[in-house]
């Protein structure tokens, strides 16, 4: 089972090829805005190193967020384009799950965080189990203060992983049961592990139905009449 993993949802972009047992090639680059320039070169590099062709692939897995909007779309559209050309499935994976999976703890309650800009974070919590982690619930977007309140009310030992460095220093001040740790960003190799289950069970949506997971507020139409007489711009292409 040959799988390509595309991770561009955070400042750390990475690509990995796995054969179902191990990662056979990978490439990585950290740059908040460099996803587009990295991705195709890195995929080429990985195929070259592994000695595979794109036609050898059985599946593609991609991080659909939450994270950086442009990064997520670069990764997702690349995955969808390749899937359409190769006729292979795409398995969507969440950034927070990929971070939590690599958290190094045997007993601590894990909080994975991703910076989703404008001073907010996406947060999900997990419990370590043999061979992986189990998510407590769906991810939420919150302020660093809200995260602090959550950590304060957690009675157990806690490990916070993800982009902890983007948080204000005061977030963890005085919280003795809370440790922060690695990884800071999700990596493509972790996507390979997360995709294995759904791939085995044949559980994945159609590639064209995949959408970025921004976790933002429901979309709001602009009330253009409030801002100019002529109202909204008419989209003639669809008329």
């Amino acid at each position: 089972m040959k799988v390509l993993a595309i991770e561009t949802a955070t400042p750390a972009s990475s690509i990995a090829l796995g054969d179902g047992r191990a990662t056979v090639a990978s490439a990585k680059r950290v740059d908040r805005q460099g996803h587009g320039g990295f991705i195709v070169t890195a995929i080429d590099f990985c195929f070259d190193q592994a000695g595979w062709n794109p036609a050898d692939l059985d599946a593609i897995t991609v991080d659909v967020g939450p994270g950086l909007y442009t990064g997520i779309r670069v990764g997702l559209s690349t995955a969808q384009g390749m899937a359409a050309a190769l006729g292979v499935p795409v398995i969507p994976v969440r950034s927070l799950d990929a971070i939590a999976l690599r958290a190094a703890t045997g007993h601590r309650h894990i909080y994975a965080v991703v910076d989703v800009r404008r001073g907010e974070l996406a947060v999900a919590s997990y419990r370590p189990v043999p061979g992986g982690v189990v998510k407590d619930g769906p991810p939420e977007v919150m302020s660093p203060d809200h995260l602090r309140a959550m950590l304060e009310s957690d009675a157990g030992e806690v490990l916070v992983v993800g982009d902890v460095e983007s948080l204000p220093e005061a977030t963890f001040r005085g919280l003795h049961r809370v440790k922060s740790g690695r990884p800071r960003y999700p990596e493509a190799a972790a996507l390979l592990d997360l995709a294995a289950g759904p791939l085995q069970k044949d559980e994945f949506p159609s590639p064209e139905d995949l959408r970025p997971l921004y976790l933002r507020e429901p979309d709001v139409s602009i009330a253009w009449k409030q801002f100019r007489q002529e109202g909204p711009w008419e989209n003639t292409a669809s008329a």
Binding site: T70, D219, S221, W233
Partner: peptide, 11 residues
């Protein structure tokens, strides 16, 4: 632009 989502998509 028609909606806030479209604007945010511009990143």
């Amino acid at each position: 632009v028609g909606s806030l989502g479209e604007f945010e998509d511009l990143d």
